[in-house]
Amino acid sequence: MKATNRLEKIINLCFWLSASVIAGIFIIIIGYIAVKGFSVVNLDFIFTAPTRAGKEGGISTTIIGTVYLTAVALLFAVPLGVSTAIYLEEYARRKSRFARLVNLTAETLAGIPSIIFGLFGFVFFVIFLNLGWSILSGGMTLAIMILPTITRTAQEAILNVPHEYRENSLALGASKWQTISKITIPSAAPGIITGIILSIGRVVGETAAIILTAGSSLGMPLSLSDPVRTMAVHLYILALEGISLERAFGTAFVIVILIIIINYMAHLSLRRLSHLSS
């Protein structure tokens, strides 16, 4: 009895340690960035444009650039990804060759490094379609990059909607599309949103693919055909070219805050949605 008791305690301790390592790493990184970045971050830093390649001024244009690129990427990827997921889970015959091909493609695409998408976007959007380094080229490249994540998570979410919901809806005389749009998609929404959040995180953190397709201009973008620099790209260039490590940390701090805000908002919307279903 005593021996098992001690073993239980040791096992418990091991798991506790693993959990604390995670928490510790998180606190150290965030703390370090906060301490280093805090001295430069203020309202001016957020609301003024960078000057002298970022040595002076703020990061306003890179925040705008990040928001635009993310919005364009989601605008393409979410409808396409969710529609694909609906097709695969609700319309395609499970064993059809086409469905298997699409599944395999999505799985493979999910594992391809982002720089490959960047290279493709550079050759295809920037040069071949002659869109130049622009929000459009970058946004579409990023859309392709996040498409597998959005599709897979949406598929998973749709698959998890109880089959009885669909049967009940159809038995009430709803058409297939009414059932999908009024029952299946709303029930799957929390899972779909999770996939979108993961994707936003990837877009906000991306650098290489963006430099190749959206450029790294510090100017304020005025249309979809203008080049932009995102915060992550700005941080990368500031640090790499030794322009200002201080400002690199300031930018990092803003990125982290933004990610935390996005996660929190998503958490709130998930809670509101699951409130309905629990």
């Binding site: 919901y165 049967e167 009940n168 159809l170 009430l172 005389g173 309905l276």
Partner: peptide
């Protein structure tokens, strides 16, 4: 069949309520 099911209601084994009010 969609019109038919309007006239022929069905109650299943598991009382499956939709996740709404």
């Amino acid at each position: 069949p969609v019109n038919l099911r309007k006239n022929v209601g069905m109650v299943f084994q598991q009382p499956s309520v939709f996740p709404m009010s």
